[in-house]
Amino acid sequence: MQSESARMSSAAEARYRINAPNSLPRAIKVIALDGPSEHVVKRLALARWNGATFFTATAFGSTPRKGESLVGWLNDLAGRTKNLIDEVNAADQVVMVATAGENVPVASLIGEACSLKRVMTTALIVGSAGKSDEALSKTLAQLRPWSLMLVIANAEEYIEDMLVALRA
């Protein structure tokens, strides 16, 4: 007689895999950290998503001083100011999008909020193709301490592919 493993791993048996949803939509917050990334994120936001929302970090290039409030450090794409902590609180995952060579000090602010709230952070660096190693390193250094997963992607479309793969 066939072993159970042999029978159950056949193509015929694969048809009986239960066809019921096995997950709930996740709240993924996609945040552009710099000017060039803002264009990318805005374009992405036009597609249909399950539970992804899109933001820009308002004050590119500057971070609040110690003790300053974290309220109002995000904009949604309609330009409304959002409380970073509230957004992070409601997130299953935060995706930070940066462009190679850009200055992204705001990463530490978002990263800190995420680590405080134990939210998974993914950083995507795009546009590194034509940039020097130093330019890339600069952006990377600002993101690395705050990213549990860091991806350097040559093609901008990767962000969309990744979000789809994550069921965003």
Binding site: L148, M149, V151, D161, A165
Partner: peptide, 12 residues
């Protein structure tokens, strides 16, 4: 999940 980015990127 996020740690699957290697696989996601390979497919991409």
């Amino acid at each position: 999940v996020s740690t699957d980015n290697g696989i996601i990127m390979a497919r991409h």
